[in-house]
Computed example of a mutant assay.
Amino acid sequence: MVAVIGFLLVLSILLPLAFIRRLWRLDEPTRLGWLLALAETAVLLCLIGLLNRWDIAGFWTRAALAALGVIAALVSLPRHRHRPWLSPDRGALARSLVPTVVSLFVLGMALAYVAWGMGARHDPRALSFPLSGGRFVVAQGGGIGVLNHHSDHPAQRHALDIPAVGDAGFRAFGLLPGDPADYAIFGKTVVSPCAGEIIAAVDGLPDLSPPEADRDNPAGNHVIVACDGMQVELAHLRQGSVTAVVGARVAAGTPIGAVGNSGNSTEPHLHIHAVDAGSGKGVQLSFDGRIPARNAQFVR
């Protein structure tokens, strides 16, 4: 699993760097060629910026790639500023630009699809943010599979997985540390996201060493709060931290446990999802008026 994470991170950094390097060194005969290459690089950077797990790769890394892209554009602009928009040999020009046009179209369609998956609204219900005491990031969230691996499960279609990041912008030191305490989210306070009644509370399951997972107890230590016609589940809590009691009424913001790594979890994070009590279907959530999707940050 570490190898897979490492490969994806390298790809998501080296591929943008390759496009930035090409833009930096670009020497097109026409301004149109330069403009298409610039657009292709910009769309790729936006796509990777939305898709990549920057809590693992580092949010400063994303900012650095964006800055390098701007610098590359400014470096290559003077070479193309006074060149013609088109060359006399239109056939040769068209053939030379076809690969860039095709790439730009494909990347643009992918970017539009991802942007739709992040922003599509499905009657979202407003809840209070379920964590306190840190800078938190949505790792899995959105309405499509490339953003949220829960999206094909009817009850968890809008589920969220939330880690935290430290001052350097990483969720942990290293790709997949084996000690749960090495993750910024571990031990953070989990609070009730709404006023309601506790209808389930489980504790006593151990916090596992990543990437070990307990598939027999998917939610691990968890709490379910019934509120506003929904059942809101908060899962993978720390062993011995659950303070919620079945049948008790809680207000929004009431501490109910702490983040751990129990259950079917490959690393410490808070899992939250809500289902409609009548239909059993997943409910889209919003915090602070925002529909959370991958890489959205919340500071509490």
Rank of each mutant, 00 (worst) to 15 (best):
L11D: 03
P177G: 12
P124E: 06
R90C: 00
H149Y: 13
G108L: 06
T30E: 01
D203R: 03
V225W: 09
F59V: 09
F7P: 01
Y183G: 12
Q284W: 02
L285M: 15
H236P: 00
R25V: 07
G280F: 06
D203F: 07
E212K: 13
A72E: 11
I256S: 07
L74G: 10
G134N: 04
A66H: 05
A155R: 12
G141D: 07
I224L: 10
R135Q: 13
V225N: 09
P255E: 01
C46E: 04
V138E: 00
A64E: 11
E28S: 09
S151Y: 12
I162E: 01
I162M: 02
C227G: 13
D216S: 15
F287I: 11
A248W: 07
R125N: 04
G247A: 10
L35Y: 11
R90K: 12
P180K: 03
F59D: 11
S103K: 15
P292W: 03
I13F: 11
A248C: 03
P210I: 07
E233F: 11
I256M: 03
T254A: 14
L131G: 07
Y183H: 02
R121D: 12
G69D: 04
I144F: 05
F105Y: 11
F173K: 14
G33D: 08
L97H: 05
P218E: 08
R215T: 14
L11M: 14
D216A: 14
G108Q: 06
S192W: 01
I20D: 00
A164L: 01
P210D: 01
L237K: 00
L44Y: 00
H149C: 02
G247W: 13
W34T: 00
A73C: 07
D288K: 13
A120N: 09
L38N: 11
R81D: 02
S241H: 05
A159M: 08
P218C: 10
S241E: 02
L8K: 12
R22T: 12
L208P: 09
R300Y: 09
